[in-house]
């Protein structure tokens, strides 16, 4: 669990972050969303004290972050950023090994951990371990960056626009992988993004920030259906709202008994994709593999939730 308690940051009297309090439960993902200059990155950097708070406290579990030496605190917290920040003069393996080495792990343990993480991130250690970062693709570099952040098994992982430099296709895959790995490891994750789509896809809760203030901190469905301020509503995007709402659930949630022609779709498909399929193929219902159907009418009803 991580708790931000009335956190503020002032630069020469001007508040960049103003009185933000929020709690992220263990194993949950909190997405900090806002336009540039909203203070979301500053808020994130106050958690691992890359920025020292002017006021307020950060609690990580039962520990007051201000009571630990900054570099010792940071070794307990994973950190991954846009453009990955890999050390260009160190191999992939050496990059991943940095924090375990700082913590004084035994070499055999470090080596095993490197292989384990590389496999987890779908990078063959035999091929990539001894390569330098510049010999990797953007997507691979980004995965190594996250693997490095997770190397010492931190309970908390901070990410600042980690997918910002990736193209849309790789980006979607990276988001899915991150979500899966986060669920598997049970890591608490705070991620900064300017992309509401990404926040909705990844976040268990979304914190919307503007001008240093926290406007709303709520699950995605609530952000979509009950935006706290006009700014949040604008950020969600009225035109996108029904689709985003649909993207939160899978076909399984709307499955009803019945028969429909055509190839059955996977129950894990998002409602948004199901709607797209109905519209594209001009059908009123789609069969779901494992029995049952999902109907266009049901999809419509679910999407209308947002506009009411």
């Amino acid at each position: 669990m991580i708790r931000l308690d009335h956190l503020s940051k002032l630069y020469s009297g001007r508040a960049v972050v103003e009185d933000v309090s929020l709690t992220v439960e263990t194993g949950q993902i909190a997405a900090l969303v806002g336009t540039s200059g909203s203070g979301k990155t500053t808020l994130l950097r106050m958690i691992n004290r890359l920025v020292e708070p002017t006021k307020g406290r950060v609690w990580i579990g039962d520990t007051d972050a201000a009571k630990i030496e900054p570099h010792l605190l940071r070794r307990r917290i994973g950190y991954a950023i846009q453009g990955h920040g890999l050390f260009p003069h160190r191999t992939v393996g050496e990059n991943i090994a940095i924090v375990p080495r700082l913590l004084g792990w035994r070499e055999a343990e470090i080596s095993a951990r490197i292989d384990e993480l590389m496999q987890l991130f779908d990078l063959d250690p035999a091929v990539y371990r001894d390569r330098l970062p510049h010999a990797l693709s953007g997507g691979q570099q980004q995965r190594v960056g996250v693997a490095r952040a997770l190397a010492a098994r931190p309970e908390l992982l901070l990410m600042d626009e980690p997918f910002g430099a990736l193209d849309p296709v790789i980006r979607a895959k990276a988001q899915d992988d991150l979500r899966a790995i986060q669920r598997q490891l049970g890591t608490t994750l705070v991620i900064v993004t300017h992309d509401m789509e990404e926040a909705i896809q990844l976040g268990d809760r979304i914190a919307v920030m503007d001008k240093g203030r926290l406007l709303q901190f709520a699950p995605p469905s609530e952000i979509l259906t009950a935006p706290a301020t006009p700014f949040v509503e604008a950020l969600v995007g009225a035109a996108e709202r029904p689709f985003r709402l649909l993207s939160l659930s899978t076909v399984d949630a709307l499955r009803e008994p019945g028969e429909a022609p055509g190839t059955p779709i996977n129950p894990d498909t998002s409602l948004r994709e199901a709607l797209a399929l109905c519209l594209w193929e001009g059908r009123a219902a789609l069969p779901v593999s494992g029995g049952g159907i999902v109907t266009l009418a049901a999809l419509q009803a679910r999407a209308e939730g947002a506009s009411r």
Partner: peptide, 22 residues
């Protein structure tokens, strides 16, 4: 690169370690 420096500090290197090792 500022990203490299930021990452080095952010994962828990001391400023002296950043200077010497990075």
């Amino acid at each position: 690169s500022p990203a490299v420096r930021d990452a080095a500090l952010g994962i828990g290197m001391t400023p002296a370690q950043v200077l010497r090792q990075v």
